[in-house]
Design a protein around this nucleic acid. Structure first.
Lengths: 229, 229
DNA sequence: ACCTGAACACCGTTCAAGT
DNA sequence: ACCTGAACACCGTTCAAGT
């Protein structure tokens, strides 16, 4: 049956039932096989989850570091990372529970550190930068997934129905608008854009904050100047 | 028996067995009671987890925003957040699965946004900044917890034994040092500080990167100048 | 080499029944 | 008002047995 087919079936179950509904028994059922049969190809559920995690990086090559374009390279890496996490339900939760220090994933870590270090960032900053943007990618995708789940649950009906964003956004708007003005002036002031801004925009803004912070550590003033407010 | 006692017992079980070992049955056993008895005080396991999450913020007041000291206020908030997450095992995992948009937690969100907005950050940046540092705190504590678990498992013996950091660090050092020099120059160059630097230092460095990024959006040049590399 | 069947030690949740 | 006991529909993992 091969490891590959087990992983594939696991992704199918994951997309249908979510991580909480991903059981070895359901994966086996998806393959038309008994549960115990899985253990010939996979040593445990955790092993299977790690295979799924590793799968995420398949076919994604790190570019050779270009000091002149380091910010653009990081942007590309981060956006691709988020997109990969969005290809399967609850994938961010799986990603957060793992660390890329395995043989297959180390080249990616090395490639990211290469970008930071050849850009001229101090070692201590470069060492932390990798963790920082990885955490950002996972964390953002995790929240995104939580809102999608919530919208899907509210939107009733079959689990195949895609989330009803309109209704969800209106509901959040109404909630924030209902808060006492005296106690929540800032939350009310920002509620609009927190709800209406697209996730892509918001992702890029957070990314830009981190990139500007990193750029501030460059010895020569290659840092981006425009403080467009 | 009261909700309070149930939550307390849940924390006891959590610290002993971790989140994966936290079951309603064990919480009941801790209280000397049948499982079904819990459902008189708590509507579900998810309800209990949410109570634990909310508990984390108990007794933590947000300071009135001071535009002159906004960076220090954010540092204090972030460090306190991480410390709270470290008071119980796997607490970061519980935190990441929840969103602070409940009645008890909204004042904290408001307080954080207040600091960013009165500091003079543009609204779009302020709106994203809250998520960004919350994600950073949770993500950092999550990783920290994973290393602690790994160290505890490696350190054999009873589950009460605190992790053997020395052994763990040496092992990681050896692992990185064993990587082919040609393929992993940057990882090898940074391995030392990734392993030896204290978690407190590393947390502050990541926090500083974010703060510098935020500061770059201030209209007036209150941004911190020193590019100490 | 690969799969089945049965078993073990667990889960969260519900609900009638007791006090 | 609070708890028990039993039941239901699930889990991950192991292991002897079959082909």
């Amino acid at each position: 049956m091969s490891r590959e087919r087990v992983v594939e079936a696991a992704f199918t179950v994951l997309d249908r039932q979510g991580l909480d509904g991903l059981s070895m028994r359901r994966v086996a059922a998806e393959l038309g096989v008994t549960v115990s049969a899985l253990y010939a190809h996979v040593s445990s559920k955790e092993d299977l989850l790690e295979l799924m995690y590793t799968r995420l990086f398949d076919g994604f090559e790190m570019p050779p570091p270009d000091p002149q374009r380091w910010q653009e390279q990081v942007r590309t890496y981060a956006r691709a990372g988020r997109q990969r996490l969005l290809t399967h339900r609850d994938m961010a939760r799986i990603s957060m529970a793992h660390v890329p220090f395995t043989a297959e994933l180390l080249p990616h870590v090395e490639g990211l550190l290469a970008i930071f270090r050849t850009a001229g960032l101090p070692d201590r900053i470069a060492a932390e930068a990798g963790d920082l943007i990885s955490t950002y990618i996972d964390g953002f995708a995790l929240e995104e997934g939580m809102w999608q789940d919530r919208a899907a649950r509210h939107g009733g009906g079959s689990s195949l129905a895609r989330p009803d964003w309109r209704e969800m956004a209106d509901e959040m708007q109404a909630y924030f608008a209902s808060l006492p003005e005296a106690d929540y002036p800032h939350l009310r002031a920002l509620a609009g854009m927190m709800v209406t801004d697209s996730a892509d925009e918001r992702f890029d803004i957070g990314l830009e904050i981190i990139l500007r912070g990193l750029a501030s550590y460059l010895p020569d003033p290659r840092r981006r100047p425009d403080p467009e407010d």
